[in-house]
Write a protein that binds this DNA or RNA. Structure first.
Length: 241
DNA sequence: CGACTTTGACCCGCGC
DNA sequence: GCGCGGGTCAAAGTCG
């Protein structure tokens, strides 16, 4: 019996070593991804600063040339086609509801089972302001039922009801990179004041990525949250890399 | 009682 | 023209 226990213990130790190695490798990968994200952010910020400086310079030139043509210097309006973007929200798979708290009030006006997904798709309109044209569709991912796919159409004509996702200076949003998703995806883990977290995956097409990053860089809340998150990150140690 | 959800019916665009 | 599928409407039900 004694020798059997010894063999069993050795197996346990071996398994733990294998697990430790696996986690170490995973941690290395995450370190590299955060490092890459941080440097990408700095590059994008540089691009943005240069672009802004260029734009301000050209507008100033036109204005000084002929003040009667000010209308012409306005940026060309984007296409009127309603903007559509996807957001992936991680929820508890046991939670059957399709409720996604994003700071706005939504009124459900329909539900439909679609061909490509057994989970029903719910249709919502913004009820914060009846004239607001924004709509959203919420459906569980066919591959992972713990993930809700939210499709937003249009833009709000009003502000938020509450704060931004409940994020406050005392509990900043943490930003991490999802190693699983193959496309251009950012994974934002947002903590509210009750220490509940919602993981939000933002999916981008190549065309709107730049625009979205620019809007994030303009948002001082996001910049400070990102800085705090990077500073807090226990796995990012540039000196050790 | 008002706001919201549920759900079946209806509408409309698209492919064949 | 027809059928299919996604999106919307609206009446009934539910909840606080």
């Amino acid at each position: 019996m004694g020798s059997e226990e010894c063999v069993s213990d050795r197996n346990k130790v071996h398994n733990l070593k294998v697990e430790l190695e696996r986690l170490s490798k995973e941690n290395e990968g995450l370190k590299r991804m955060i490092s890459a994200m941080y440097s990408n952010y700095e590059i994008l910020e540089g691009h943005l600063k240069r672009k802004r400086a260029d734009e301000e310079g050209s507008i100033a030139m036109v204005l000084s040339h002929d003040s009667s043509q000010r209308q012409m210097t306005r940026p060309i309006a984007p296409p009127t086609r309603p903007m559509e973007r996807n957001v992936f929200v991680r929820t508890d798979a046991r939670d059957a509801g399709l409720t996604v708290k994003d700071g706005y009030q939504w009124r459900k006006y329909g539900q439909k089972v679609t061909k490509d997904n057994p989970s029903p798709r719910s249709y919502f309109r913004c009820s914060t302001d009846p004239s607001c044209p924004v709509k959203r569709k919420v459906q569980r991912c066919a591959e992972d039922e713990s993930v809700l796919m939210v499709t937003y159409e249009g833009e709000h004509t009003h502000g938020l009801v509450g704060g931004m996702h409940g994020c406050k200076a005392s509990s900043p949003c943490s930003v991490s990179v999802n190693p699983v998703r193959p496309s251009i995806t950012t994974d934002l883990t947002l903590s509210d004041t009750n220490h509940k977290t919602t993981t939000v995956y933002q999916n981008f097409t190549n065309s709107n990525m730049e625009e979205y990053v620019a809007s994030l860089a303009r948002d001082p809340n996001f910049v400070s949250a990102l800085a705090t998150s990077v500073a807090r990150s226990s796995i990012y140690h540039p000196n050790q890399a």
